[in-house]
Amino acid sequence: MGWLSVRATGRFQRILEACHYYVGSLPGVVVALALVTITVRVVLPLYQTAATLLLAYALLFLPRALVGLRSSIAQAPVELERAAMALGRTPVQAVSQITMRLAAPGAAASVALVALGITNELTATLMLAPNGTRTLATEFWALTSEIDYAAAAPYALMMVVLSLPLTLLLYAQSKRIIGR
């Protein structure tokens, strides 16, 4: 998808991409409510299942991943793909050995960003998660709403600690890009 949006700039691709960004800009509550409505009205068995939750995450976070992936693919010029083809690589090999290879650090960064987002995501998780599902954010939220700040603190700390390596990774990544 990321590759398509950079290399093949057809109308369909652009519309598809625009939809993505549009959904990505919606607040989590809106997407979650929409999914709640759909699952309750149309496919009740899916209400509050892991599948719906994953779908919500996908809708909310795929655009973020896409932005990162897209820009890192755009950084690998077509000329390199062409050079690889002139050196005997098939188009598929050229994309996988050159473009994907060059986009990999950027892609990793987007994955890290998304992981960060999901760890801290609250609203959609609360509405859609199967009963009994507990994420760090929901636990934290549950405990703070009971004004049990002391018990909530470890969860907050864990969120911070978990986010830390990812943030460091992102930081290192951005420094490398600037350093080039």
Partner: peptide
């Protein structure tokens, strides 16, 4: 016939070297 089966060399303005 696709480029990879032509046996034609290509050098561009900036060299297009693989940076990695």
């Amino acid at each position: 016939i696709p480029a990879h089966r032509r046996g034609i060399g290509f050098v561009t303005q900036d060299g297009s070297l693989f940076p990695h």
